[in-house]
Design a protein around this nucleic acid. Structure first.
Lengths: 206, 206
DNA sequence: CAAAAGGTTCAGAAGCTTCTGAAAACGCTG
DNA sequence: CAGCGTTTTCAGAAGCTTCTGAACCTTTTG
């Protein structure tokens, strides 16, 4: 995180490869430049999981959590902890911890099958829901505390002649107005029904 | 990053205090519950810088970078490296590195005063510009590579009877459509003129 | 051109986060 | 209530990121 903006002029920023994961490519296909020969399913899965894991951290979930989420997104049916562990080559503790975190975030649901003691996990597959969940969390954890702080100091320096005090007061004011607006926007969007939201946006930005 | 959603029911999530920074409170004011006695300017500055630094990482800039940015946001006039170093108690190397990163991100500008060899730094004070810069960077670095990956694997499994292949194909399709829409929205917003954007939004979400 | 002032670099230190593996706890079922 | 399959916990290990401080480089000026 926080490298400076890519200065390199390479048009393709970076192949999403992360850790090559010594699980060998289950296929042997060596995808050529042309998309004529479609890469095989297992390969695509792998690439998706790596990509999702790669960008997870910038959404606020760590890499393993994101990989588990990706795995579950692609699973046609619920998986148990054991399956997650072996698919991603992670330890029991790690799997348990991150699965729980995913459940806490509301990105993954626990499912109990009758007559089964194991717990199974299913990902929320509706990406819009996923986005809303994350946005909601981050609003609560980041935007709102910041707003509160800004509210507390918004009057400071209002009527001081000192340029430092004035600069403070003005900056805080500007930021507060902006953050307040953003908060309102977010709130509306998060409350809004998906189709309503999309209808408006699709019209505006098509 | 990536703690699970706050389960604690405490309504005030967390005082933005981060590192108490043994620079003693420059004021001695002990702000009471009521905002009658406004906290003093130096105290407010400090709190703002700490808060900004605290949330920086979730925006993609690290803590020190965010603190420097905050410091510059509140400064009535350009600061040089020395001032940044002593205000935040960081080393020369650290200051240099993070200042440069801020310049690369486009969040801070270098300013040369005539007859001065030192470089001075000014923050972009327009928060909407700041937001756009960050959004633009992240779009380029995260959204677009992901879209490219999704494009490459979008056909995989399309006509396979295997449920794994089908699940893959469907998930990838859903995510790709969503990401594509998000990308278009972002693009429009980023191109758009500030006032235009705000006009529409303020109308929609007031 | 020597000294001074400022900027840059980088190897190692410090600090955080995440992961592992093993032990403990849990909760059925016979 | 013993045994078993499963989940949870946690101390230490591993790995990453960031920070420091000192050496190095560059530019200006007496």
């Amino acid at each position: 995180m926080a490298q400076p903006p890519s200065k390199d002029s390479a048009p393709t920023p970076d192949p999403l490869q992360d850790q090559p994961e010594d699980q060998p490519d289950a296929t042997g296909s060596d995808r050529p430049g042309q998309p004529l020969v479609a890469p095989d399913v297992a390969d695509a899965r792998q690439r998706f999981i790596e990509g999702w894991g790669h960008y997870g951290p910038t959404w606020g979930v760590n890499r393993t959590m994101a990989q588990i989420h990706a795995l579950l997104l692609l699973a046609p049916e619920p998986l148990d902890a054991e399956q997650v562990m072996s698919a991603l080559n992670i330890s029991r503790g790690n799997a348990n911890m991150n699965l729980r975190a995913l459940v806490d975030w509301g990105l993954v649901g626990k499912q109990l099958k009758l007559g089964e003691r194991r717990e199974f996990f299913v990902a929320e597959k509706d990406i819009w829901q996923v986005t809303k969940r994350i946005a909601r969390e981050r609003r609560k954890r980041e935007l709102q505390p910041m707003l509160e702080l800004l509210g507390e100091i918004k009057e400071v320096g209002a009527d001081s002649p000192d340029p430092h005090a004035q600069a403070l007061h003005q900056s805080v004011g500007r930021i507060r107005r902006f953050a307040g607006a953003a908060d309102k926007v977010l709130d509306s969007v998060l409350r809004a029904d998906e189709t309503w939201f999309f209808k408006i946006f699709m019209r505006l930005f098509k």
